[in-house]
Design a protein around this nucleic acid. Structure first.
Lengths: 352, 352
DNA sequence: TTGTACGCGTTATCAC
DNA sequence: GTGATAACGCGTACAA
């Protein structure tokens, strides 16, 4: 490909780094002020004389200066980074929350550092450890249960912590979410109120997904209290997918011959149930009523439309952002304000 | 609320920061070596005498030392951060890629900084600007089209850049993905091969989603070349959702009375089409054949199972990680290796 | 309002 | 193999 100059020409690999040469001092020189004035201008433009401000702005534009947040973070002993750790970003619930959170934080000049724990406490601890080494402005975790090591690290760090998507325990610092056992109970009561008595709760990965397990417990308890005839909790070891739903339905059918009500720990599972029922000619809600969890994209449009429970993942993101922001601005978040219940909402549709 | 000591007692807000007191020097002191040795041990343990290594390791454990990556980044002029910018993490495609990418990078001790452009070039530029201020080890962008400002910033920075999810243009640096017009063409040819001649392409947000628009173009072109009788591209201004699919189907039905083949720019849209057809009693694939794009979770399980085109989002994540890693380790990625085609795969199922 | 001086915690280069 | 020493780029008193 090397047309041209005869001899083999060693193509010098494009040199890396050191090109972010433009420092605050360069700007200061060009603007004829001292570096600290530039720094001041960057942080509080109104505290600098308009004339100097003009010059500085001009210099920044001319040089294409990009502030070095690494240096800034080091000097200020706290970076404008928020570390978010979720089990998996593939999960639509967390994707929604992270998406909202990222937007809200970006608007305030905060960056998001993302990590996946894959429902593992050890992995979470490792992620927290590296997160901490960035001196983040805050750390956001999913759920209330963490390894002792994680707790220790977090407490020793003094970094604001928000635990999300779960309420009911003692948070490390702040918490935003809702109560999962109550979600399970709502589902059970809804089915019971429709006259269903032979119930099943279909969940996935509950050996790791602590919150799904909590929904199952709440479901069982409400079943007992509400006079259900049968109440089975069935777990699929793999992830919560549509296919898992089809598998779980068949197992439920085997275990409960008169099955007439199903609660799913996830709308994807519910969708699988819907499909499998259609295949087997089981009428919904005629023969079996189905309620899901999540209010995902398709839940309003599927056939029949799916009764489900909306967790408001975006609201969680918003509230987490609010807590972080006020916690950063020195205004210490106090007492009751530190635990925010975003509630859950039951959306009744045609499947029940 | 303030019970207790008579006088108004100002409850001192839990002090922030400065608790990350344990520095490398503390470790050095405890281990009776110099800070440089500790630093060396941390980066190349084998370059330090076993005895000293033991001591250092012990000290680190005892003190609970967590390295300060901010300081490290400043000194080394390059941080162990990779900035990833996608249109939206709610999109299952990108969620999959980001998830894989994050895991691969975390395994190598790299953190992920996440940003959402929401399909906006201006927003992307802002994100790139702040990303750059972290002196990232690499930057990952979605697609090949960016604002001139973005290009300038990136080129001036010297940071390795990977553009993903699109091939066919001239990448800034490296690229991983596939050709979208070819995807559209594959869909068209598949429908034509089934004897369908009255075709429609249903897309969403194509005024912003450049790649979806490319799939539509490829589709139209192949329709022309393949002798289609009708070929309409219909766009929904909102996001690609199941509901958008139901809306789009109805518009297609109006525009093409003899409609017998549909390609969707997204499996969610296809699912909406499936549902709406079921509602209206339109037989699939009897009356209308449907092909999607994405091979999402439900595509294999829905009724009928959905013929679709798999983009291999996880493979993209893996390849991007590979490029980044080798590009960091000095081993300059060269020539042909800099552009990686992950291809697309047509998965035939019952809907065609 | 603006400038000076110092320190943040680490890496990298060199002598030893 | 080990340890001084000098950056790294910016915040932040404090002084002017």
């Amino acid at each position: 490909m090397d047309t041209g100059s005869g001899t083999a020409q060693i193509r010098e690999p494009r040199r890396r780094r050191k090109m972010q040469r433009v420092t605050m001092m360069d700007v200061a020189k060009l603007a004829q002020v001292s570096p600290s004035t530039v720094s001041l201008y960057l942080r509080k433009p109104e505290a600098v004389s308009p004339a100097a401000g003009q010059e500085i702005a001009r210099a920044i534009g001319a040089l294409g200066y990009v502030p070095n947040l690494v240096a800034g973070g080091l000097a200020a002993a706290s970076s404008r980074v928020v570390s978010i750790i979720v089990p998996s970003i593939r999960n639509a619930f967390f994707a929604e929350t992270v998406s909202t959170l990222q937007s809200e934080l970006a608007a305030e000049g905060l960056q998001v550092l993302l990590g996946h724990s894959e429902y593992g406490e050890a992995q979470e601890e490792a992620l927290v450890r590296t997160a901490l080494s960035w001196a983040p402005a805050a750390i956001v975790l999913t759920g209330l249960s963490h390894s002792p090591g994680t707790r220790k690290l977090l407490e020793a760090s003094g970094v604001p912590v928000v635990e999300m998507w779960e309420l009911g325990g003692e948070p490390l610092d702040m918490a935003v979410g809702f109560n999962h056992p109550q979600v399970g109970a709502s589902a059970a009561r809804h089915l019971l109120s429709k006259g269903r008595r032979n119930l099943a709760f279909l969940g996935a990965r509950m050996q790791e997904d602590h919150r799904a397990a909590q929904r199952a417990s709440g479901f069982e308890e409400a079943c007992g209290a509400g006079g259900a005839t049968a109440c089975e909790v069935i777990n699929h070891l793999g992830a919560a997918t549509v296919e898992a739903g089809t598998l779980l339905l068949n197992r439920a059918l085997q275990q409960i011959p008169d099955l007439d009500g199903i609660a799913c720990s996830n709308d994807l599972i519910a969708l699988g149930v819907l499909f499998e029922c259609q295949r087997q000619g089981i009428a919904i809600p005629g023969q079996v009523a189905v309620i899901g969890f999540g209010d995902l994209d398709f839940s309003a449009s599927c056939i029949p439309s799916l009764t489900t429970i909306r967790p408001s993942g975006d609201l969680i993101g918003k509230e987490v952002a609010r807590l972080i922001l006020s916690s950063i601005q020195g205004a210490r978040v106090e007492g009751a304000q530190r635990i925010i219940d975003t509630h859950h909402v039951l959306i009744e549709r045609r499947s029940t």
